[in-house]
Nucleic acid binder design. Structure first.
Lengths: 151, 151
DNA sequence: TTCATATAGATGCAATTGCATCGATAGGGG
DNA sequence: CCCCTATCGATGCAATTGCATCTATATGAA
């Protein structure tokens, strides 16, 4: 129960981290909305599914990758399916589950979102820091991750 | 309409920034909940009000500081007021507005939240990076901010 | 003064999120 | 085979958020 109080440098870095990430996400979401495109979360899912290929992914695999709660993934997948961006397939060796696979229009949507999302990243990060600085930033952030996390 | 696509370093740094900040916030929110305390947004408001002192703040001043939408601030203030953590005073020279001032129990709540919040920052940032690294991180993040933003 | 416009803050309604829980199947001991 | 427990995914309900709009006061031009 020893409640350590944080060093001033940590507090400052924390504040910037939180504020900056919120600002950047907000701007990107706004750009997507302005382009009549769905939110970032949709891209994340479509991206993972596209990487997974024809084999698709199980919803529970998606949960770790996109950092969303189980119930949010469940509902997000329902929306994506309703929009025809993915399809749910029963999985033979597990009657509880399903496999989720991206459709062609899902891939197309992913491309369209990326046109805006990528441009936003370029503008908000690529234009502000050099390649070397970006690498330093990524390395420092990497040390704050959970030990187990991938990118 | 030239849509630049971002350099790989920017994409990597972006991904880490988004994921890490979400993880850290999530853990901190969880710690607060576990301690029976209100969410981080409450702390932000109480912190700003505490800094503002007896003069208090106008709601619209809070909006910039806490990065929340106007309607969210309006409702958040209502909840804080309902909990007796702040009071709303009419302001003499502007009949539309009000001044919001923290109460003693608001200050007390701020302290209680900080006990957990500060410990979380210490654990999640202070323990992971050196003071020098934290400064580097803060400096890099600072370059990603909106030109006008304070901390 | 009078009207048009701008700003402060609140709110109705729809969409989303969080929480708890559910139904269904898996898997493992006895 | 029969339970008991764990896991997968969905969902009812309450709280929160986003969006649009509203009321009220302020400000400024004519």
């Amino acid at each position: 129960m020893t409640r350590k109080s944080p060093p001033a440098e940590a507090v400052k870095a924390w504040g910037r981290l939180i504020r900056v990430s919120r600002q950047l996400v907000e701007k990107t979401e706004y750009a997507l909305k302005a382009g009549g495109l769905p939110p970032l979360a949709w891209y994340d899912v479509l991206h993972e599914l596209a990487e997974a290929g024809e084999g698709g992914l199980r919803p529970f695999e998606l949960i770790d990758r996109v950092l969303l709660a189980q119930y949010n993934v469940s509902r997000l997948l329902a929306r994506l399916e309703a929009d025809g961006l993915l399809e749910k397939l029963p999985v033979s060796d597990d009657g509880r589950g399903q496999t989720v696979r991206i459709t062609p229009s899902g891939r197309e949507m992913r491309r369209r979102i990326w046109a805006v999302y990528g441009a936003s990243i370029a503008e908000l990060m690529g234009d502000k820091l050099s390649a070397k600085e970006l690498e330093t930033l990524a390395a420092l952030l990497g040390r704050l991750r959970e030990p187990l996390a991938g990118d």
